[in-house]
């Protein structure tokens, strides 16, 4: 007795789902994660990869099966069956992608919010955030307000703060053909490499001098265009000590491919040591003066 086709279909579907989940979980395609939002990103990647694998294997399997099973035999010049459509079937395969896409959309919205993507751009000053929150929110709704009530300049895009409890290390990033320059307003240091302490939230305020560049650290899973005339923000918390590449990801001229730098994630002690050794002379003297 033949196995009912519904049962076969069910079994194939289950095998396919398990295979997709297994591949999504076990095939590693991403570089190491070195920021707080990278594991969040990797979770989203795993979901998308699993769903994609299931759909791709299913569709390609169906295609190959059809090509083999329903190939035209030599000498056969007949036609196939005259099936012009099947409304319930079409409703099913409209509904499945719609549900999947809706699920993926809501899930990635959640991920985006956890990355801090929905945070307002205007509260990048660590001072009196809560007091300003309501007003800032209204300002961000109107969008065309060029200046905040407190005189801050407009931020045009990027990832804001994911949590406002930790102290934020502000860094000013200037991109130009063909280098990034990092300026630490608190300590007055200017450097060609970005040095950050492990576990502390860092906020980059970025602007370009000449053409559009993009700041990208693959291990942080973060990228933001650096635009002339339109400051942008990027907030992240490094979670793994090491040196990672900073890559310019927007075509910016002949040496675009060579526009690279490094971000060095230090242990907090190591970062303080780096700060001390690189502090400009006069600032260091001024800081040291009260103790002498």
């Amino acid at each position: 007795m033949a196995i009912p086709s519904a049962l076969v279909t069910l079994l194939i579907g289950m095998a396919l789902t398990l295979a997709g989940l297994w591949i999504g979980h076990n095939v590693r395609l991403l570089p190491v994660d070195a920021s707080a939002n990278a594991p969040v990103y990797d979770a989203l990647f795993e979901v998308l990869f699993s769903i994609g694998t299931i759909l791709f294997l299913g569709i390609v399997g169906l295609l190959l099966y059809s090509l083999v099973r329903f190939r035209r035999r030599p000498g056969d010049s007949g036609d196939g069956q005259a099936i012009e459509g099947n409304l319930p079937l079409e409703i099913v395969w409209t509904a499945i992608p719609a549900v999947v896409v809706l699920f993926v959309g809501i899930y990635s919205y959640d991920i985006y919010e956890r990355m801090g993507g929905m945070a307002s751009f205007h509260d990048h000053s660590p001072h009196d955030q809560t007091a300003m929150a309501a007003m800032v929110h209204e300002a961000s709704l109107t969008q065309q307000v060029s200046d905040d009530p407190d005189g801050q300049e407009r931020i045009w895009g990027g990832i804001g703060q994911s949590n406002d409890s930790a102290a934020v290390l502000p860094v000013e990033v200037t991109a130009m053909q063909f280098a990034f320059i990092f300026h630490y307003p608190d300590s007055g240091i200017t450097a060609g490499e970005l040095h950050v302490p492990l576990g502390q939230s860092v906020q980059l305020r970025m602007e370009a001098k000449d053409v559009i560049h993009a700041f990208w650290v693959p291990q942080f899973r973060l990228k933001q265009d650096v635009i002339p005339g339109q400051p942008t923000l990027l907030t992240f918390t490094p979670t793994r000590v090491g040196t990672y590449p900073i890559v310019c990801a927007e075509l910016c001229g002949p040496y675009h491919g060579g526009m690279r730098s490094n971000v060095v994630v230090h242990e907090p002690d190591g970062f303080d040591a780096w700060l001390q050794s690189n502090r400009p002379a006069q600032v260091a003297q001024a800081a040291a003066a009260p103790f002498s």
Partner: peptide, 18 residues
Amino acid sequence: GIKFFNWLATLWGGKIAL
């Protein structure tokens, strides 16, 4: 997606010249 499923259904049960 609808278009792709429809093409697969067009192939299904046909006599496909490869």
